[in-house]
Design a protein around this nucleic acid. Structure first.
Lengths: 342, 342
DNA sequence: ATGAAAGCGCTAACAC
DNA sequence: GTGTTAGCGCTTTCAT
């Protein structure tokens, strides 16, 4: 039932070697022969068996990606970027969902290691040690996480957290709540880093609430806490939570951005669909996915050879931020922050 | 660098055959031997090379899934269901995004066919002929699409479209617009089938608008058209479009559900987060993914042996449906439809 | 209960 | 340029 290289060879009246070459190094063949072989292959609908090929070449033509939770819209976007770019480069991709389990993050990579040429790892929970262990198995590139000199695709979260605070400050806010994500998540720590730097620079009273699961419901809970604390602005760990905040504010009759301003992170599809549309720090997720593939492909076996890849990020000012009702300080109208350089 | 079966054999002082058996048919070995081999394998961190194994057994231990668009939240949910169930059964999964291209839907399956034991196909655009062609390549199970007797996991869309219309009718609506999805999509045709049946049964004036790309923006455009046509209720092809309708209504100062009722399809995560929360027909996407895996695994090579798998669906009445402002007919208060039997 | 040997489908030296 | 040959790592008859 399977057509093999031998079938093609017989039909084209050549040896299997010639068939193999026609497919992998066509320039070595006389055009006439090449055509004859390619024709036969087409006629027989022949496709090389990748398992057999990989057995000898050591390359699989596959890539892998591990994400913590496919039901968080952040990750499908990354997966999509990976998928599209990989396919374009002739690679197929393995996908695994770790269900936000630190152990699974490591195991899933190990499990696919044998069948891939490299894997893109979104593992906010795995320990640094676990990550380093993976290096013995296959090439990896981290997304949104730094771990020693393991190649990584990053977004400058801390910087844009500072910009977000600055934006709020310029509007006149002096009392801001941050609704935190998972304590151990790398990107949460980065947000905090930016937050503290910003608070120092701008003399903003900062209230940290959390940690929360990065979900809609957490935004509802966080909004209650933040509102009761009397802040004039809320920065959420991500858009999902920010949307929860919006929902809760509406339910409590708190006007946004009239009574309280809200800033999210990610710029999910739905961030622009809310009412009012959400001011948020955009994360180029699909781009990150593609970039991770490029890094992986460029790596070509030798790990730790590449510098981190940092992606441009920016603050998207939409409808959920405005001057507080009773600004303690009069400032000029908000000016949209410039786009990230480079 | 790679440890092979020979390394284990040498270390355990047995032949490679014995090592192979220790891993695949342990009962054939004397316990003592078996232990010795297993120990050696563990010490060497030996994992069989799946490519080599698959070369001879013909089985790969992999499954595939093809979806039209990962950025439509409908599909990540299916993928997640597939992933989780497959992993649990010891399978790894290949993922491919066809970018809503009919040709790609077919090609991607062909491309992964050699590396998988079966693939789950979400292909709304591929022709029936194309789908049938896939059968020569590998086992497949369709999701949300029927094509001859190819195994499929379905949701009873037409029936619940009828229920949706009935719900609207009971509320007093007599003039309803349907914002259609892609003309050729199977699930759009199913919706239309249910719609026509319902309209016949309930004497509702029906206005079909579209086709549209199943996205938020289309909902905005569709809302304008529907509103101008003077209907009192709008049924959208999916939640994404329904959310667009909501957004446009808000912008035009049209009250929902006061001035117009809105019904979506899918019950995305965000359907319950809108203001007001969306009345919608829920589609058990993650379940569909798991179910598809079960069907595939049960198939075990022999296609066309399984009856269609139909998943329970239901209408979730939330905040976007209510009696029209000037009902032409007074009816009792809306009663939530019963849950789907079975 | 265990081992020797023959491939699975393919590529890569190495001849010609 | 093209063919011959020797495996890649593994499972599986067929012996013993």
């Amino acid at each position: 039932v399977t057509t093999t290289i031998h079938d093609v060879a017989r039909r084209a009246g050549v040896s299997v070697t010639t068939v193999s070459r026609a497919l992998t190094q066509p320039e070595l063949l006389r055009p006439a022969t090449r055509e004859r072989v390619l024709n036969a292959a087409r006629k027989l609908a022949y496709h090389p068996n990748r398992a057999a090929r990989s057995l000898i070449t050591g390359k699989t033509g596959n890539l892998g990606i591990v994400v913590p939770d496919l039901s968080n819209p952040f990750y499908p976007a990354i997966v999509r970027g990976v998928q599209l770019r990989a396919n374009q480069a002739g690679y197929a991709v393995f996908l695994a969902d770790s269900s936000e389990d630190a152990a699974a993050e490591e195991n899933l990579v190990h499990a696919m290691a044998k069948q891939v040429d490299g894997v893109i790892v979104c593992a906010p929970f795995a320990s640094d040690a676990a990550l380093r262990r993976l290096l013995d198995t296959t090439s990896i590139v981290l997304v949104n996480r730094r771990c020693g000199d393991i190649p990584a695709v990053l977004m400058d979260i801390a910087r844009w957290m500072r910009e977000a605070v600055a934006h709020l400050w310029r509007l006149g806010h002096r009392s801001v709540a941050y609704l935190g994500g998972p304590r151990s998540a790398w990107s949460n720590r980065e947000r905090l880093r930016g937050l503290h730097a910003a608070a120092k620079a701008h003399f903003v009273r900062l209230i940290e609430i959390g940690p929360f699961e990065p979900k809609f419901e957490a935004g509802i809970e966080g909004a209650n806490l933040a509102l009761d604390a009397g802040v004039t602005a809320i920065i959420a760990y991500n858009d999902l939570m920010a949307l929860g905040v919006l929902s809760r504010c509406a339910a409590r009759g708190v006007g946004v951005p009239g009574d309280v301003s809200v800033v999210g992170f990610d710029d999910l599809l739905f961030a622009s669909m809310s009412a009012p549309p959400l001011t948020t720090v955009s994360m180029p997720m699909e781009t990150a996915g593609s970039a991770a593939v490029e890094v992986l492909l460029a790596l070509d076996g030798n790990n730790a050879a590449t510098a981190d890849h940092s992606l441009p990020t920016r603050l998207i000012v939409r409808g959920t931020t405005a001057p507080p009702r009773r600004p303690r300080l009069r400032t000029k109208q908000p000016s949209a922050p410039r786009r990230a350089p480079r």
